[in-house]
């Protein structure tokens, strides 16, 4: 049996299994929840963090202090958003200092601008530990931004762990690209 046939068979089987299960009278897993499920949140959670899909405009444009958007101008260092790290390290390498300084300066000058620092790790190790490793890197970038006058309330540190890593890396050059922090501005 070729792969496509297998997949088709699998798909139809799964669909049939879903239909069959929907008829069951016993409680089973019969209602897949949509991810956009807005079921009532009864938790007393902290205010929701700014997320990247919350709007279209950047704070820079809103402030009216610039005519173009420096954050996306390819000739501006602010358009560079990625800080890479050494294996098992969270120190910001010298070559990324200018990039981090530029973003710190932008945040200091634009008090309403907010960033999410998204840490990442390579695929070696467990997913949850890598989530924490990526977090440590985003915290490291945050500290550098703080030192240069960006405020805590402008910065959220999160991690994707190894989830956005290029899988099946064969060499160090590939792993290196996965050990990074991406700087994402609110509204982007």
């Amino acid at each position: 049996m070729n792969k496509t046939m297998l997949n088709k068979k699998l798909l139809s089987s799964l669909l049939l299994a879903m239909v069959l299960s929907a008829c069951k009278s016993t409680p089973m897993v019969d209602k897949p929840a949509a991810v956009d499920d807005k079921s009532p949140n009864t938790t007393a959670t902290a205010p929701a963090a700014p997320v990247a899909d919350s709007g279209a405009d950047t704070a820079g444009v809103k402030d009216g202090s610039v005519s173009g958007n420096p954050l996306t101008d390819p000739n501006n260092i602010l358009s560079k958003r990625t800080v890479y790290f050494d294996f098992d390290k969270d120190t910001v390498r010298e070559e990324f200092r200018p990039l981090v300084e530029a973003h710190a300066k932008y945040l200091a000058e634009h008090g309403s601008a907010k960033v999410i620092l998204q840490g990442n790790a390579d695929e070696r190790g467990t997913r949850e530990y890598n989530l924490s490793l990526g977090q440590r890197r985003s915290v490291s970038v945050k500290k550098s931004l703080n030192l240069l006058s960006a405020q805590d309330k402008q910065i959220e540190t999160v991690s994707y762990g190894e989830e956005k890593a290029t899988a099946n890396c064969k060499d160090e050059a590939c792993h290196q690209l996965n050990r990074r922090v991406d700087i994402v501005y609110e509204g982007e």
Binding site: P27, M28, V29, D30, K31, P32, A33, D37, S39, P40, N41, T42, T43, T45, A46, P47, A48, A49, E128, L131, S132, Q135, E156, T157, V158, S159
Partner: peptide, 21 residues
């Protein structure tokens, strides 16, 4: 946290930063 009987879910933890494990 999601119920397997009803499919209903609640957000258990959505604090600033990561919520995991």
């Amino acid at each position: 946290v999601q119920s397997l009987t009803t499919g209903q879910r609640l957000t258990l933890a959505n604090f600033k930063g990561n919520n995991s494990a």
